[in-house]
Amino acid sequence: MYQYLEEELDQLRTRIIKMGSLVEEQIELAFKSLYEQNLELANIVIERDDKVDKYDVKIDKQCQRIFALTQPVAIDLRLIMSAMNINNDLERMGDIAVNIAERTLNFIGYQDLLERIQLPEMTKKVQAIVKGAIDSFVNNDAQMAAEIIKLDRVIDKAYEDIFERLIHEMTENKNLIKPCSHAITLLRNIERLADHSTNIAEDVIFLVDAKIIKHRKDIDSAEDSPTV
């Protein structure tokens, strides 16, 4: 029985890591397609989302099976709860990668606009946050996760700055209203990637330290998990 649980938990962990790696790659390719105006890459991202969705369903089923058959507690329980949440976030991040890839077409000929509003800089920071969140799960590293959560503030600030720049661009040149409108959606998508990464980091802290820190600004005063 316990060996069965061990095997299930190992497999669950491995699946989350593989899914995380796939989603990270999807995001990377989506940005590459956007900034290099490469529609072929965009299509690869769109087609591969099916693979992300398959992981999502497999992980959901596996968590359900483990709950039903083994009644996990303590660290095992926290792993499954975290896996369910992380799975959900990764699946959403996969969808966002598809949304970004689908917008590639809208920015053909407008690369200078993206440069002017400094979107590539924000993109790099978000990619680092995505990687850091997934790495914190792979390494069971709550400290690393806590750092990632703090970085989200930087992204929020970048979001506001770029939003202002877009308003400025539209005010200055009415011909840019359409690409700037697309860029606002794109900006929102990129910011959401950081939010989902923060959620993953919060789950890593719950997994490692049994602390629930979501919706809290001060992660150091977070409570221990309160219920069975």
Binding site: M1, Y2, E6, P72, V73, L77, D224, S225, T227, V228
Partner: peptide
């Protein structure tokens, strides 16, 4: 009991209740 089954303080307790 809440603490014991969510975040036991002793590593031996954790190993026992998780069957390891």
């Amino acid at each position: 009991t809440r603490k014991m089954f969510t975040k036991p303080e002793d590593e031996r307790t954790q190993r026992y209740i998780t069957g390891k």
